[in-house]
């Protein structure tokens, strides 16, 4: 009987019944960081954002709590807006000290202006839909932090509008990728979930399956993108092959120019015993099969 009572009481410990009321807490939906350090916070069901200037993340959150009149919980933050003002340390502190979700989306924009004018929920929804349809490679806080810890110290971050990408260094230096390179990045980060590709002449080709293979031979890293298409003529396959090859090569070229690694070259080098610094040559191969 005692065990049964204890087992029934145990789940009560996990409900937070003893903690403060829901209305006494502010749950942040989006956080924007600029410089050292301006932080703006947009809560759930809140329009606009509150802006705070402080010396550190902890201090900024204390000021926000004073302004909001209650505790701030950042664990459900869905969007993190950053710019090129070198907020890398602040982002790391947000994750390690404040417990922001590792799946939080990161967006390159003017943080304060963007959050004052846009609803973070719509932005997050747009980013997720773009990733699901293969328009954008998957990026989130965990991948950004990890890429900043890599050899290139550069992360791939989507830009406001959910169409373009930038290479953002931890110190704030930014390199915008061309449209062709952005398309190539979609295939080199991981196999995207696209169901069709549009050629330059407007023809749509259906895609059954996409595979990405990463290998290393003779000191060279090779990325092979294999596509299985349906109902495409040989000339269309050839055009698709050429388009993707150029896009992937452009992505690699622009990435090399920025001395970045956002496609996992370092992991391939380490697993094959190849020095990752400086990053070796990356060859791209595209195979289109019917």
């Amino acid at each position: 009987m005692k065990r049964l009572v204890c087992l029934c009481l145990l789940p009560l410990m996990l409900t937070g019944c003893g903690s403060e009321g829901f209305a006494d807490r502010t749950y942040t939906r989006a956080i924007g960081l600029h410089g050292a350090l301006q932080m703006c916070v947009q809560g759930f069901e809140q329009e606009g954002c509150t802006v705070t200037d402080a010396g550190s993340i902890g201090e900024a959150l204390q000021f926000e709590e004073a302004a909001a009149g209650g505790r701030i919980f950042t664990g459900h933050t869905e969007l993190l807006c950053v710019d090129g003002s070198g907020v890398g340390d602040a982002v790391e502190a947000l994750f390690l000290e404040q417990g922001i979700s590792p799946g939080c989306k990161v967006l390159y924009t003017r943080p304060v202006a963007y959050l004052q004018q846009h609803d973070a929920a719509e932005t997050v929804h747009s980013l997720r839909m773009a990733e699901r349809s293969g328009l954008l490679p998957r990026t989130e806080l965990a991948t950004v932090l990890e890429e900043w810890l890599g050899v290139g110290q550069t992360a791939l971050v989507p830009v406001e509008g959910c169409r373009k990408l930038v290479l953002l260094r931890q110190d704030g230096k930014t390199t915008a990728l061309s449209e062709q390179a952005c398309e190539g990045m979609r295939y080199l980060r991981h196999a995207p979930a696209v169901t069709n590709v549009t050629l330059d002449d407007g023809t749509e080709i259906g895609i059954d399956r996409i595979r990405l293979r990463k290998t290393a031979e003779d000191g060279t890293v090779r990325f092979t993108v294999k596509l299985r298409v349906r109902n495409a003529s040989p000339s269309q396959c050839s055009a698709l092959h050429e388009k993707l090859r150029q896009a992937c090569e452009m992505a690699v070229r622009e990435m090399h120019t920025a001395r970045a690694d956002v496609i996992g070259v370092q992991e391939i080098c380490e697993s094959h015993g190849i020095p990752a610094d400086p990053l070796p040559e990356v060859q791209v191969r595209v195979e289109v099969q019917q």
Partner: peptide, 29 residues
């Protein structure tokens, strides 16, 4: 990956990364 390797207590950092649900954190567990 590098995120846990760079931290002093990698298994504890792993708990911050391993959140199975988007709407509910597992930190309490």
């Amino acid at each position: 990956g590098r995120l846990t390797a760079s931290q002093q207590y990698p298994f504890l950092t792993l708990t911050a990364l391993a959140q199975p649900l988007e709407g509910q954190r597992a930190d309490a567990l």
